[in-house]
């Protein structure tokens, strides 16, 4: 897998993402500056976390207008893999590549803690390598991570299997206490209808090595690699 890790002014998780793909998984990876207009021969794109443009106006609102995003949209239209993490998720929703929006956390506090994620849909390039029944313990760090979508949109993404991860407690129940930010239906991550673009607020790249205390997040990136070698049939 050749992975392009985007960099915007204010991105701060780009190095972690590249490290996981390149050094932990041994894949090819490189940075792509937001002003570039081409993704080269990348098989996958990661839009990393951070505070692009200082979260000015809205998180991800200005980054979505960067020159590279035209190439990302074309890449996604062709079926290329795009993963947005935290601010990357915000950028992808702002760009219209993912449904819904991210708003201020319910309790108005910046949350910095570990969460448990239940994988809801395993038939995507981002979840196919996550063992069934295995929850991921992944850190979150955000102030605007509350996922919102209107009722019709929620019904739509539920019916099309677009909800990829939910916040759950240690018993696997998606209750209010396990929801760090007030997201509707405890949604932590979603994908588009086709299944090739995904986003999540938690940081799997910070839970991909045992030395950091958690490694269950690596399965997200392993899924992408697996898809590149043995593609899952995407939705039309």
């Amino acid at each position: 897998m050749k992975c392009a890790v985007l960099q915007f002014p204010g991105s701060n998780c780009d190095q972690d993402c590249l490290h996981v793909v390149k050094n932990v998984l041994g894949q090819s990876a490189g940075y792509v500056w937001h002003k570039q207009t081409s993704l080269g021969d990348a098989d996958a794109v990661i839009v990393p976390g951070g505070f692009s443009y200082g979260d000015y106006l809205r998180s991800g609102a200005i980054a979505k207008c960067s020159p590279i995003m035209s190439a990302v949209k074309e890449f996604a239209d062709r079926g290329g893999l795009v993963l947005g993490i935290c601010n990357g998720f915000q950028i992808l929703t702002e760009a219209g590549l993912l449904p819904g929006a991210l708003v201020r956390n319910r309790d108005l506090k910046f949350v910095c803690e570990h969460v448990l994620l239940q994988t809801v849909s395993r038939g995507t390039p981002f979840t196919c390598a996550i063992p069934e029944g295995q929850w991921m313990r992944v850190p979150v760090a955000h102030g605007d991570g509350c996922y919102y979508i209107d009722p019709a949109g929620l019904a739509d993404i539920e019916s099309h299997g677009q909800i990829l991860w939910r916040y759950v407690n240690s018993s696997g129940v998606a209750d209010e206490a396990s929801n760090p930010n007030g997201s509707i239906a405890n949604i932590a991550g979603v994908c588009n209808k086709r299944g090739n673009v995904a986003g999540l607020m938690p940081h799997p790249e910070r839970a991909s090595e045992c030395i950091l205390g958690e490694s269950s997040g690596l399965a997200v990136f392993q899924s992408m690699v697996q898809h590149c070698h043995a593609p899952i049939l995407l939705n039309p």
């Binding site: 708003v103 201020r104 956390n105 319910r106 309790d107 108005l108 509350c146 919102y148 209107d150 007030g182």
Partner: peptide, 12 residues
């Protein structure tokens, strides 16, 4: 914010 969106700042 749209009325349907919970506005924690407004509530606070």
């Amino acid at each position: 914010p749209k009325k349907a969106v919970f506005d924690p700042q407004g509530k606070t």
